[in-house]
Each structure stands twice: as C-alpha cells, then as structure tokens.
Simulated scan of single mutants.
Amino acid sequence: MSMRIFLIPSATAALMLALPAFAADDAQSFVNKAAIGGMFEVDSSKIAQGNAKDQQIKDFSKRMISDHGAANAKLQKIAGEQKLQVPTQPDAEHKSDLERLQSTTASLDQPYVEMQRKAHADAVSLFEAYAKEGDNPALRSFAAETLPTLKMHRDMIEKIAGASAGLPAVKTASTPKPPAPVPGANSFTEAQAKKRIQDAGYADVSALAKDEQGVWRGQATKDGKGISVALDYQGNVFAGQQ
C-alpha cells in the first residue's frame, strides 16, 4: 500500500461529526445527530487505531479521537446550558457500522475510509444548514465555528482515499462507469442503497441483499417492467446484472 504523509493541523474549537445526510429541524434534533456522530467518530477511530494498516490512516484516526473528544465535550456543555438532552448511545445505523469494523478480519482501511468520507460529506451539509438557519443562537454559533474545520477534514479524508492504493474513491460525475459492479467492501446501508437506486430512475426497489463481493442486489421496476438491479461500493447502479 502506498504511503503519503499529510500534516494534520490542530483542530479549532471542534470539528466534523459523522451524521446522517439531512439537516436538523430544531436544536434538539441537531444535538441528537451531533452527539451520535461524535460518538461514532471516537469509537470507529479507536477501532482503526488498533487495526488499520496504513500509517496515514492511523494518524488520521488518532486526530479524530483527540479532536472529537474535545468537540463532544463542548457540544455537551452547550446542550446542558440550553436544557437539551444529549444521547449517550449510538443509533442503529452507526452501531451496525461499528460492529462491521470490529468484526472485519481483513484490512479495515477501506471500509473505515469510506465511512469517514460519507460521514464528513454529511456533516458539512448538516452544519452548513444549521449555521445558516438554526433556531438556537448558541448552537448556531457552534455550527458556524466548526464548519471550516469540517471542510478541512473532509478534504483530508478525500486526499487519503485518493492517495492510498487499494482505496478507490466513490464514483463522481467524471469517473467512467465500469461495465459491471466493482467488488469491494460496501459501506452503503440498505436504506442508502435503495435511495441511490431510486435516484437512478428505478421504482419499487425490493429484496435488496449484499452478496459476497459487497454488491447490493435486488429487484425494481422501470417503465412498468420488472428488472434486477445492482449497486456496487462506488455507487454505480446496474440493471439486468446477475
């Protein structure tokens, strides 16, 4: 595996939190997502610290443990001052991801990096939305102050993904679509896989199951006709694949 050295600047007051890809409606919703995301960052990075093979990933995960520990404490303090409840346990989706990392017998570098990329993209969206339209001034300031660091670390994990051999990036608009699903550790949840297939123009997506190559496969309809569909870990959607 090729190695690259990235200088990881000291975080400011707080940094990115791994969160679902939708904006918080109110202060309590924001705190819920932020706290759960912060726990996930620390816990997943502790697993990576002990099991990652690439040194740059170990360095990144070490920074996540340190900085998110501080961020979690600051969020908890603000939430307490605002009389808001702070979750102490991960939700089902993050718990499942942690269990998958913990039980990985092969290298966990790829799934960890994929989870971090998705989490940071979602975090930027969440914090941008709350910094702009949040209903609680203290939390809105927290989101605004954190956002530049979120974006910086999102860029860092993208560089790590691109620089490390064996960690292909999720498909972008400029990436040519392969002729068949690409095997690889797939960090899309079933709900995320279903939405991505629906966004590609398919309806009635059902019977999704992940095969031994990490490819989500199931059934859907398009133009009123039933068809088999597949989604690989890069986000490519295929029809008629067996």
Rank of each mutant, 00 (worst) to 15 (best):
residue 6 F to W: 09
residue 6 F to V: 09
residue 9 P to F: 05
residue 10 S to I: 12
residue 12 T to F: 09
residue 14 A to I: 10
residue 15 L to P: 00
residue 17 L to Y: 05
residue 18 A to E: 11
residue 19 L to P: 00
residue 22 F to W: 03
residue 28 Q to S: 10
residue 29 S to Q: 06
residue 34 A to M: 12
residue 35 A to K: 00
residue 38 G to S: 09
residue 38 G to R: 05
residue 44 S to G: 03
residue 45 S to F: 04
residue 47 I to P: 01
residue 52 A to L: 07
residue 56 Q to L: 11
residue 57 I to A: 05
residue 59 D to T: 08
residue 61 S to Y: 04
residue 80 G to P: 03
residue 82 Q to P: 02
residue 83 K to V: 15
residue 84 L to W: 07
residue 88 T to L: 09
residue 89 Q to M: 13
residue 100 R to Q: 12
residue 100 R to T: 12
residue 101 L to A: 15
residue 102 Q to I: 05
residue 104 T to V: 11
residue 105 T to M: 07
residue 107 S to G: 12
residue 108 L to S: 09
residue 109 D to H: 01
residue 109 D to R: 04
residue 110 Q to P: 03
residue 110 Q to T: 14
residue 118 K to T: 15
residue 119 A to S: 15
residue 120 H to W: 08
residue 120 H to V: 13
residue 130 Y to R: 00
residue 140 R to N: 08
residue 145 E to T: 07
residue 149 T to D: 14
residue 150 L to G: 12
residue 157 I to K: 05
residue 163 A to R: 03
residue 166 G to R: 00
residue 169 A to Y: 02
residue 170 V to P: 00
residue 185 A to F: 03
residue 191 A to E: 11
residue 193 A to Y: 07
residue 198 Q to Y: 09
residue 199 D to K: 02
residue 209 A to T: 11
residue 213 Q to P: 02
residue 215 V to Y: 02
residue 217 R to K: 15
residue 221 T to H: 09
residue 228 S to N: 12
residue 228 S to G: 06
residue 228 S to A: 14
residue 233 Y to M: 06
